[in-house]
Design a protein around this nucleic acid. Sequence first.
DNA 1: CACAAAGGTTCAGTCACCGAACCTAGATTG
DNA 2: CAATCTAGGTTCGGTGACTGAACCTTTGTG
Lengths: 174, 174
Amino acid sequence: MALPRDYAGQRCSVARALEIVGERWTLLIVRDAFYGLRRFGDFALHLEIPRAVLTSRLRALVDEGVMERVPGPGARDEYALTEKGERLWPVVRELMHWGDDHYSPDGPRRIFRHRQDDGLIGAGGRCATCGALIAATDTTVTAGPGFEPGAPATEPALLAFQTERRLLEPARPA
Amino acid sequence: MALPRDYAGQRCSVARALEIVGERWTLLIVRDAFYGLRRFGDFALHLEIPRAVLTSRLRALVDEGVMERVPGPGARDEYALTEKGERLWPVVRELMHWGDDHYSPDGPRRIFRHRQDDGLIGAGGRCATCGALIAATDTTVTAGPGFEPGAPATEPALLAFQTERRLLEPARPA
DNA sequence: CACAAAGGTTCAGTCACCGAACCTAGATTG
DNA sequence: CAATCTAGGTTCGGTGACTGAACCTTTGTG
């Protein structure tokens, strides 16, 4: 039980997983990372999360091996998902799917496709065209019918949420 | 934004979903419901959650239509997942899968099978035998190699976590 | 050099969580 | 019928986490 807010006594992998990604904000940080955000300031800007909390969450994610701190294109470090972190994609996907089903009356806000054959990715994460399970790296996002663009992004990194793109591709080009 | 702890400004179905099931304990309550727990006292006993918090979480889940309060076999009411709640199964399954992969060195603690043909249910929730996406109702749980039984359950309802069973089947027989 | 930007840290106020004790209505027992 | 028990909560004081704003430090820029 490594984390401060643990679920002592729960002998279950759901509880164990939630000790890592179940704290407030954490899974949204991971989601943003799938969309290509990598810098402290970009997470803070997009999530409107208190900076101290962001510091704490990033540290915990790095400690747990979900993200790693890597040198960025400039002199600044960036935070990137590790492979362990990328494997959280199914969790994020299913959560989004459930949210779309129940809280997005006009249909999904985002649609995912298999990068190789452009096939739709449906429930269970399989490509409707080739039938394979598609990892985050091979997934592209595009706007769905329920997408609400809001104000056009003023900050370059936040464009990642309004344009078609490949998951995990850095939002800030090098 | 219905809930107290919302993610204001997040125009995203992941955030919306997390407003409902992202609070501490909530997803563990839902998991227990998949295992067949239905009564206030059983949740309190198994989760060791403060009763006031349990009251608050159950109320929120009922308000959001994830669970409903139904008359039980005795005179007492019970809490049962609605269809909307049952659709959270993929989220719970993928979270468990991730937890098993990264925090259960001896292999998965639980194994899921398709009730109709006994086929293994793997990543993405599909039956390895028939290839169909399997809903919670048609899923049975059994102990996996990483299962740690702990002390034998003293309370009848908690046996649900130690015996092979069908998901959603009430832990307390009528 | 002055300045700005990025990435944090600090701090006081508020809010949620915690665990223990208490309360109440209905069933059970004597 | 009174006494007891049980289940399902509510209440309460103490503690810890989150919040938002301000501040600090290091690194690039004109």
